[in-house]
């Protein structure tokens, strides 16, 4: 089973649209933390579309996703757990 051309084209159009939303959000003055969270959410959504349809993981056996992604997600969450420390460092400097 493979994605149809219409599905691929819809994903492509949606990805371009989300990119424009990201650029549009860069100009109102949002706090850095809020902007970061919104951008991360959009990036994760875009990645899911790329992985699911372009890399056709959605059409592969679920065992493949279960073998590949839990490790990656845990690793990234551990890395992200370091980010609040950046705020502490900022306060120590000034």
């Amino acid at each position: 089973m493979q994605p149809t051309v219409r599905q691929l084209a819809s994903v492509w159009a949606a990805l371009l649209g989300f990119t424009l939303v990201e650029v549009g959000l860069a100009y109102p003055h949002l706090s850095a933390a809020l902007f970061l969270i919104v951008l991360l959410a959009l990036s994760v959504g875009k990645s899911a579309m790329i992985i699911g349809f372009f890399m056709h993981l959605k059409f592969e056996r679920r065992a493949l996703s279960l073998a590949l992604f839990p490790l990656l997600i845990v690793f990234i969450l551990v890395l992200l757990a370091l980010l609040p420390d950046a705020e502490r460092l900022r306060e120590m400097r000034f």
Partner: peptide, 16 residues
């Protein structure tokens, strides 16, 4: 790439 991106973001957030 995750490690590099988090490093960049850490530097970005910790420095006004």
């Amino acid at each position: 790439f995750s490690a590099l991106l988090v490093t960049y973001t850490y530097c970005r957030l910790s420095n006004p």
